[in-house]
Structures are given as structure tokens and as C-alpha cells.
Design a protein around this nucleic acid. Sequence first.
DNA 1: TGATTATTGTACCACTTGGTATGTTATGCT
DNA 2: AGCATAACATACCAAGTGGTACAATAATCA
Lengths: 196, 196
Amino acid sequence: MGRHREFDPDEALHIALQVFRRRGYEGTSISDLTEAMGITRPSLYATFGNKEDLFRRTLDLYERQHLCFAHEALQAPTAREAVERLLRGYADVLTDPTSPPGCLGVNGAVACSAASEPIREELIARRMVNENNLRDRLEKARSDGDFPDDEDSADWARYIVSIGLGMAVRAASGASREDLHRVVDVALRCWPTVSR
Amino acid sequence: MGRHREFDPDEALHIALQVFRRRGYEGTSISDLTEAMGITRPSLYATFGNKEDLFRRTLDLYERQHLCFAHEALQAPTAREAVERLLRGYADVLTDPTSPPGCLGVNGAVACSAASEPIREELIARRMVNENNLRDRLEKARSDGDFPDDEDSADWARYIVSIGLGMAVRAASGASREDLHRVVDVALRCWPTVSR
DNA sequence: TGATTATTGTACCACTTGGTATGTTATGCT
DNA sequence: AGCATAACATACCAAGTGGTACAATAATCA
């Protein structure tokens, strides 16, 4: 009964996922969504409820469509292989060339609207400075005979900074100080030493 | 010449830092700032320029006041100790009880306004599910004789998830797929094996 | 004291935000 | 055909956004 819908809700949801993934929840406006989805505001509200409902539905779609690899990964024969598949698969999802970079689950509460792009870039630049400082420190260690010749200082700096970023997100999510230090415990369990 | 300022700009900047650190750049409104700083809008604009200028000044203050430990940490005698001091010091800053949790540099482009708090909590909850799934997988590995008895599965799950979070932030900042896989390379270099 | 100058408070600007009321158009059932 | 129903488009809402004009106020200098 009644008039037919002139758009495909599933297709529209896929587009919403793309927009939310790039701009985050707050950084995305209803106008951004309707424009990208090619529908009007009342159509959006009638079909998906409000903005929050729509975002939750895109989260479900995202997990179903992009994070589905995780379920299989966990079933690998060994734990080591399961974890590696998990991280490799996630790395690929994060850099899937057909989608905005990053994770909807992280960008959702992290990414910002186009208006504050300059701030975002400023923050990225400052982070890069820190990573370079650390790399330089490791290079100095190498010349001190304190860091192996066959290890890549940039790789280790990148790794350490990533640990820091992960801790920062955890802290913002309410993690305790002890929680973070346990991350450090594991992260530093294997540190390269010079063979002599 | 002229009327005296009735507030201390430095003190006001410290308050702005607290607000930005909790809410992020976009999540913080000018009204949030003036209310917390106890000054009027024109005073804010006259003293600090616009919102973007103010945020950059809080960034400088943050690095000077909270991230200053990093400079000394890098001067530790060994690289290993420098890195440990870096991560431990950062963990403490992230959970400093006198400041909102997390890092201004990360929250700045990540944290959200009070309006989208429910979404933030939803995302945190979903992340926790993943971490628990991973921990359970490691527990199963332990009963398979594939994970050491003296290793904490929760610690390793926390560590792996943190690596993932760090990669997600990197990806959102424009990191390449290769960059992320290099992080994984280092992260998995040391995986616990059962002694036999 | 009087002129100058910088800060203050109030009130406002145009614009965007998430969300809707309403009338119109297109469909299916009887 | 005629009625009921659902999606459509337009136009709107109150509230909040970053940012400012302007006049009153308080200080210093001559």
C-alpha cells in the first residue's frame, strides 16, 4: 500500500557508512548525509530514525561487512597465527582504498568535520615530529653500539609511537593508569639488543 | 595606558587546556570556554585571537607543561631506558588525576561534545567486546598448550588491541598500508611460546 | 583635570545544527 | 473509480555555532 520508496535503503546505508567513516559521528551533519545519499531529510528520518539510530546501523553494517574477517581469524589453528591474521586483516581494512582511511569505530568518536581540518593536520604534524625525534634517538643509540645494525630505527619509532597512540585512545576511553602500564609491560618485553 | 585586564591570561589558558583536553577541538564551543575561563567572548577574542589560535596556544602549553618529560627521557643512557621512560611517562600523563584523561594531541581531533556521549560509550563498549573475544581466544590457546601458563591472556589481548587502536589513528592520519604492516612486524616480533 | 586607550558587558550577526509540520504525489486494495 | 496509505518535496522550527559592533568603564599620560 502507498507510494514506493524511490531509493534503496541498503545502498543509502552503505553511503552513510562512507560518510561517517570519513568525518566521524559529530563531524557528519544531516545535510552531509542527505546530500551524499541523494535523499531528502524527511526520507532519512522516516527510514532510519534519527542520526544516532542511523549511526548505530552503519556500525552494524561496518562490522558485518568490513570486520567480518576477525571471526575467521580467531579460528586459526594457533593463537599466534590468529593474532597475526587479526592485525594484518585490520591493517588492510584500515587502508582499504575503496573506503575512507581508518576505522569507523575509532574515527566515529575521533574524526572531525571539514571545518577543523587545519587543526587535524597540525596535530598530525606535531606527532610526526615526535616520531622523528625518537627515530633520531635510536640512530644515536646505534652509533653508541646500543642498537643493532640490522634493526630499522624508523620501524621501531613507528611501533613505539603506535603504542602511545593506542594508549591515548584507551585513556580517553577511561582506561586506568595500571591498564596503560600493563600495555607498556608487554610492548617492551622484547627489545632488540646488540649481539656480541 | 587603558583599562587593566581583569583576568590572568596564563591562568585562563590553563583552563582552556583542561576544556579542550576533555572535549577536543570541535567538541568545545566558545561558550564552554568563556564559561570555564570566567571571561566574556570579546575578552577571549581580544586576548587569544580566534578559536583556532587559542587551541594552538593550548597545544604549546600542553607540550611545555605536560609533555616536557619526553625531552629528558630521550637523554637516558640507553635507548631501551629512553623508550621505557617515554612510554611510562606518557602513560602517567594520560592518566594524570588532575586533568581530563587522554592526550590533547589525540583527543583534540578525537574527543566529542557532550551531545554525542552515548555514541562514544557505544564505541567503547564494542571495543571491549573485541578485546574480551581475543582474551578468550588466548585462554583457549592456553588449554590447547599453545599459550604459556605464566603469561596473562588479558595482558596480551590488551596489548594487541592497543596496537590496533594505534594503527587506526595512524590510518586516519593518512598512514599507508605498508606503514601499518611494519607496525605489525615489530609488534609480533616477540610472541610468547610454550617452553617444552 | 582632561584626553587617550584598552578592556569590559551587552546585544547582536549570519549561518549551521538536528529534527518536523504540512501539503502533494504516487501507489495498492476494494 | 475511489479510498487509504506511504513516500515525496518544501519550508520551517528552536537552539547553538563562531565571531563582532558598540557603548560604557576604568586605567594611564600629559
